[in-house]
Design a protein around this nucleic acid. Structure first.
Lengths: 331, 331
DNA sequence: GCCACATCGCGAATCGTTACACTCATAAGA
DNA sequence: TCTTATGAGTGTAACGATTCGCGATGTGGC
């Protein structure tokens, strides 16, 4: 069906090896021959078969990306970061989403095995995931975009979740608020747990009882934030301020509150987390904790490629990504 | 290095053929043998090499997706739709982004060739793109997620852009506005052109001179919308209403306007296009034209898989995706 | 005792490309 | 003149799985 390297070889009256060399190590073949082969190849419409190529030298030119979800501004930004680096390195992205489920994440890990040169993984429970690598004897470089346990021999990135939660809460306290609620994310999320810890620590330090504050559950979506906003309205008294574990929920909550006439920040101050692109375009613009999401994607991908190209394995590192308080009009 | 089918065969004391049969045509081998082989395979950590498999029977279990960009809520939703279907069909998504450039799109097309079983393409200039398919003799099924020319033998989806632009504008007129500006998207975008046509038609019909209305250029990003908002403020008189060619820009523009004290919808009404998830959570919630973006992804992917699995080629169809006016608080 | 059928093996070819180990000139050096 | 080196190109064996054509068993039914 398709024209193969041997067809070209025959037509150009050289060996298949020579044709292969023209496309791979062109310095090994005479320029005249090269030109002839190239012409013939073009004329015949020859395109090297990527699959055969992969099989032959064990490189797929593809990296696997496993994310909780393939959409939303947060993951979107990560993908953008990875995409940028991958394109420079002439690699493709095979994206697989676990839908926040550990078993799906496991399935993705298994079936991605063998089709990629490396793996970039983000799960909500990095702790649980890491065991799988041993179990399934993953033999390609892996970079975790969450914090795996520090003791484990994997490359990973650690967002300063606790410091971020602390900074956001402290900021709210400084603004004079005493009754500060929190909107949580998915229950098993390590990130959420840490952000909450920072929140509690800040309250505690200021002499405010963390256990007396309103706690609303969410799942990181705008819709759940909206729902959280409605729950806040049902409370006997509205809190002075709310720390939302991500921006999407903060946006949803603000929407629900504003719809009922609650003025932000006058009646209630709102702080988010992540600093997704949309955060600066809400009304009022959202005070939040900036997470270098795009950089996370970029750095993780860069790390992965350096592992892929390295002759001998580098020592795994855990990189800390700093968070930063961005004060806008919502507080 | 890795454990092969022959290793398993040896260990399970069967032939490689049998092992292969276990994993492919399991009905041809006795259940006892099957179990034994499966156990051994598991114990040894055998994973069939996907590349070899692909080479052998010409299927990659992968579909290629070419989008202008891999991020943002619009493309994000498309990806979600495709992802859903692909996962059901046990296929992977190879995502490639053209960064709104035709040449990059071309490059992606070329190099995706041979690594995928089918292609889902969205470009800003579908007209220019379609020629490439012939030129590069793409031999896998292709579905365009934009409207290719109706005369061409490709499957494609057509968003009712013109009707949408018309509906949005007419709605603004019905609300009593007479001076209605427009924020455009990327200059070469076919979608933008059509939306603008609808906008102009509605104005014309209402006896309003389209050429007398403010026109601001944008590029579909929130940032460009924000900039557009600032430009509006520099005009001698603010228009009564604005139709933005997508939601992201509408959100950006609202942000800039509100920051300067412009009340929406009292001082200025704003309508967007797309109905991205965020549109319902802005303050005020955004009136917009709903495009079934998620469905577009789903349907396109479903169509693609039906082509991939079909024995004989089906006749290409052009499917029209209806748009719908969603009235919210911004008008 | 014969036949049908289920189960499995064997060897070899195939998919398209790449890499190793050569050969064969021709040129340079002593 | 006889090595020795070098540039240019070839032949063939991988890479790992699937598939095909047979053929070899063994089992059960009648």
């Amino acid at each position: 069906m398709s024209v193969t390297i041997r067809d070209v070889a025959k037509a150009a009256d050289v060996s298949a090896t020579t044709v292969s060399r023209v496309f791979n190590h062109s310095d090994l073949v005479h320029s005249d021959t090269q030109e002839r082969v190239r012409n013939v190849a073009n004329r015949m419409g020859y395109r090297p078969n990527a699959t055969a190529r992969s099989l032959s030298h064990g490189r797929t030119q593809t990296v696997g990306v496993i994310l909780p979800a393939p959409h939303g501004e947060f993951f979107s930004e990560i993908i953008r970061g990875i995409d940028e680096v991958a394109q420079e390195a002439e690699h493709y992205m095979l994206i697989s989403s676990s839908h926040y489920s550990l078993s799906e994440s496991e399935a993705a890990l298994q079936s991605l095995q063998g089709r990629v040169d490396g793996l970039l993984i983000m799960t909500i429970q990095a702790d649980a995931q890491r065991g799988l690598l041993d179990e399934y004897a993953i033999d390609v470089p892996v970079v975790f975009m969450n914090n795996a346990s520090e003791s484990l021999p994997y490359n990973s990135f650690k967002i300063e979740n606790r410091a971020g939660g602390y900074a956001a809460t402290q900021h709210l306290i400084e603004r004079g608020h005493r009754r500060i609620g929190i909107i949580l994310g998915p229950p098993h999320s390590h990130d959420v747990r840490e952000r909450r810890r920072g929140y509690r620590a800040a309250l505690h330090e200021a002499g405010i009882d963390p256990d007396a504050q309103p706690v609303i559950e969410g799942d990181f979506t705008q819709a759940s934030g909206y729902e959280a906003g409605r729950r806040l309205l049902e409370l006997d008294t509205l809190p002075d301020a709310v720390f939302s574990c991500n921006d999407y929920m903060a946006i949803g909550a603000m929407s629900a509150l504003q719809k009922r006439g609650v003025r932000i920040p006058t009646d209630l101050a709102m702080a988010g987390f992540d600093d997704i692109p949309s955060a600066q375009y809400t009304t009022p613009a959202l005070t939040t904790i900036r997470v270098p999401v795009y950089d996370l994607g970029r750095h993780a991908a860069e790390r992965l490629f350096s592992m892929i190209h390295a002759a001998d394995p580098e020592r795994p590192r855990q990189t800390v990504l700093p968070t930063e308080l961005i004060v806008r009009a919502s507080t």
